[in-house]
């Protein structure tokens, strides 16, 4: 159960497949931990778009959590 998603409508498309991205749950490996995150994904090849808000926002928050304790 999730109340938060990084998947939002985007103008980005998959260049290889020329298809619009769709929201999907993906496994993210980060600092030796695996997380399930909802992101925009190419339904053809599985390409994942990592938005800036995730890369410099929540990732940083989680990084501090993982490193401090």
């Amino acid at each position: 159960m999730s109340t938060f998603s990084f998947a939002e409508a985007t103008a980005w498309q998959c260049a290889g497949c020329n298809r619009p991205l769709e929201p999907a749950e993906v496994k993210v490996t980060y600092l030796n931990s695996v997380f399930t995150v909802e992101l925009m994904v190419c339904p053809g090849c599985g390409f994942v778009l990592v938005p800036e808000s995730l890369a410099v926002g929540k990732m940083l928050e989680v990084e501090q959590l993982l490193e401090d304790k």
Partner: peptide
């Protein structure tokens, strides 16, 4: 303790 951190991280990703 890695599993406790993993759960806390997953909470951040799932609930903001």
């Amino acid at each position: 303790s890695d599993l406790l951190k993993q759960l806390a991280g997953q909470i951040i990703f799932s609930f903001g």
